[in-house]
């Protein structure tokens, strides 16, 4: 899936993946897609819940051998 920006949050513990994601998406245009890579177990559910509560759209997420990837479309 295409993305406009990739955020590498691997190795970061909660809450940093979402702190970084929020910062990254703030600088983007509406409609652009942010791709996030994380290894924190909690990010699986938290990124989905964060996207929902902040009005962004989680287009897709995958688990590639312990690396979780998310594609979030900015509102």
């Amino acid at each position: 899936m295409n993305s406009d920006k990739v955020l590498d949050a691997k190795g970061l513990a909660c809450p940093m993946p979402i702190v970084r994601a929020k910062k990254a998406i703030t600088d983007m245009e509406a409609g652009q897609v942010l791709e996030i890579h994380a290894t924190d177990q909690g990010s699986k559910t938290d990124i989905a819940a964060w996207a929902k509560s902040s009005g962004h759209e989680l287009l897709k997420d995958t688990d590639e051998g312990g690396v979780f990837k998310f594609w979030v479309k900015k509102n």
Partner: peptide, 8 residues
């Protein structure tokens, strides 16, 4: 209950 990501 207020998720941390709503308190950033």
């Amino acid at each position: 209950n207020v998720p941390y990501f709503e308190l950033l």
